[in-house]
Design a protein around this nucleic acid. Structure first.
Length: 530
RNA sequence: GCGCCCGUAGCUCAGCGGAUCAGAGUAUUGGCCUCCGAAGCCAAGGGUCGUGGGUUCGAAUCCCGCCGGGCGCGCCA
């Protein structure tokens, strides 16, 4: 902020009539380039038709003295590099120890936010794609909470559609002793081993309704157990069927008709979604009188708006990307004053699971796919979470089971957790984080580097929350851990000099706190021992 | 065929208008434990950022074409 103030002041002096210039400030990767750096002079160069270095010099002249700033220099083509006095840099340590779990959090925004994710239909165990959604969605939700929002985690599922019918038929067939592929097996029935387990509990194979209820209940329970094992909790489970029973689906269709955006063709009712950027119009009511899934989708999102969620984030696989335009178009057509870009979507691509150098495509339990449970069993919850969240959502991602199992240097999860455990081990020797310490005793380059890194944390959280990109938190934690490991190898914490020791212990406590805060956002544990 | 996404080091991936942007991990090679945890540290080699144009003072980053890969294109959900 101090640097920004200096630059703004400089801007007034150097170019009073320059229009609205956005001042970009960045943290140079190379510490030799100062603590912060800006390219304003180069941005202005074009407008002012002056050499960037010349303009930069004027900024320096205009800056005057500031108590926190050690130096303000010009480098390269016209960068302004600022270096703060080390005391100012180290202040972040006091702040972290003061704020504790609150470090990196902000109360700046305070809206009701909903994150919808997983939303698996109860037709089988959760697969790795659901796992990626669970890891992503939960971390995104945690990031929104860190910004001060009141967040609702919601799971939406279809408990009554054609997929459920297929499930019931599959279980019924199995209960009658018919196996997949044999005569009488339903078309596109579910072939996983779990179908047989459910079928074993069926007493009357003729009562399809009872079978349906039992199968749905069974799989819901199983999915809940998987989510619990993964450390993900939902606040609301929303049933698609309720949209029919409470009349919201009919209401939505009527509202769409009233909007004048619908028309009849081939015996069906269509919505002009092309008015809102869709590539073709969509059927609302089929010629047989039933509705397409598009209607409950829209009705569901109307409830989100009506429930007061002004920011809604839907986490889905990229295979659903065509629904994005459609749902938004449906909401626009209703004319409820819902913003055009509502809701936000985070689309993730699929996960390829590799083990022993080969792609794994099947599992015993589910048959045609690898389950989230398999992954947790193979490599543990923390590794699955960290891996799945440490990639940008839209990159296709190869989950290397052998790498994740490796409890050693190859595994980034352990690398970060190990840094935390290492700090803990220092305190485990009978030392406590000091109440009083002199920050200026910290003077070597690795200590200042650590302080710089710690200071970045709140910005990293803010940006990750804004961009719905939890992977940047994972990358940050890796860097913080690296800085700490490097420091720990180079310097002793528990030195004889008590004042120096106190200062170093304070730094360690700050590192521990920040690692714990970041890991908790990702749903990964911060162990004291490993 | 059309739409969306993606091509960066051997492999897995960050960076996505700013020169200080050619990066991390891993793999390979060589060093570091009588001392707070070696699940660690230090160092070396390794890339025309798919490709051809364009815009710009400046392009991995923005625009267009092409090549390669993923996903979606139902009165299925």
């Amino acid at each position: 902020e101090e640097f920004r103030r200096v630059l703004e002041q400089g801007l007034r002096v150097v170019a009073p009539d320059a229009g609205a210039i956005e001042i970009h400030i960045e943290r140079p990767k190379n510490p030799e380039h100062g603590d912060l750096s800006s390219n304003v002079a180069m941005q202005l160069a074009k407008q002012l038709k002056r050499n960037p270095r010349e303009i930069a010099q004027k900024f320096v002249d205009a800056a005057g003295q500031s108590p926190a700033i050690e130096s303000l220099t010009i480098a390269g083509a016209g960068f302004l590099n600022v270096r703060f006095k080390s005391g100012a840099k180290l202040e972040v340590i006091r702040r972290i120890l003061r704020e504790g779990n609150g470090f990196g959090r902000s109360q700046a925004e305070k809206a009701r936010v909903q994150v919808e994710f997983v939303s698996a239909n109860p037709t089988g165990p959760l697969h790795v794609g659901h796992g990626r959604q669970a890891a992503l969605g939960d971390a995104i939700a945690a990031l929104q909470e860190a910004r001060g929002h009141a967040v609702t985690r919601e799971f939406y599922y279809n408990d009554a559609g054609a997929q459920i019918d297929k499930l019931a038929w599959s279980v019924q067939a199995r209960a009658r002793g018919i196996k997949p592929g044999q005569p009488g097996w339903p078309e596109e029935g579910y072939a996983g081993e779990y179908i047989e387990e459910i079928a074993r509990e069926i007493s009357n194979a003729n009562d399809l309704d009872a079978i349906r209820r039992h199968a749905v209940g069974y799989l819901r329970k199983e999915q809940d157990a998987d989510l619990q094992a993964f450390g993900v909790k939902f606040d609301v489970y929303y049933l698609e069927s309720s949209l029919y029973t409470d009349g919201r689906v009919d209401k939505t269709v009527n509202a769409l008709k009233a909007s004048g955006k619908t028309y009849d063709k081939d015996g069906a009712l269509w919505l002009r979604t092309t008015d809102y950027g869709d590539d073709k119009d969509r059927v609302v009511r089929k010629s047989d009188g039933s509705y397409t899934y598009f209607v409950p989708d829209v009705a569901y999102h109307v409830t989100k708006w009506e429930r007061g969620f002004r920011k809604v984030i839907d986490v889905q696989g990229t295979d659903h990307h065509s629904t994005v335009t459609r749902v938004r178009a449906g909401l626009q057509a209703l004319g409820l004053g819902i913003p055009k870009g509502y809701p936000d979507y985070v689309l993730h691509s699929l996960v390829k699971v590799m083990r022993g150098g080969e792609e794994v495509k099947i599992s015993k339990r589910a048959g045609s796919y690898v389950t989230l449970r398999d992954l947790i069993d193979w490599v543990g919850r923390d590794a699955v979470r960290f891996f799945l969240v440490s990639r940008k959502a839209d990159t296709e991602f190869v989950f290397d089971v052998d790498l994740a199992r490796e409890k050693s240097l190859e595994n980034p999860v352990y690398y970060v957790q190990y840094a935390h455990a290492r700090v803990c081990s220092v305190f485990a020797q009978g030392f406590t984080p000091p109440d009083a310490f002199q920050l200026e005793r910290l003077s070597n380059e690795k200590e200042l580097q650590l302080a710089r890194r710690l200071e970045e944390y709140p910005d990293v959280i803010a940006v990750a929350a804004e961009e719905l990109a939890p992977h940047s938190v994972a990358f940050y934690l890796r860097e913080l851990a690296a800085d700490f490991h490097s420091y720990y190898n180079a310097e002793r914490i528990l030195v004889e000099d008590e004042a120096l020791r106190a200062a170093r212990l304070a730094l360690c406590a700050a590192v521990r706190q920040t690692l714990a805060n970041g890991l908790s956002l990702l749903g990964v544990s911060a162990p004291e021992k490993m």
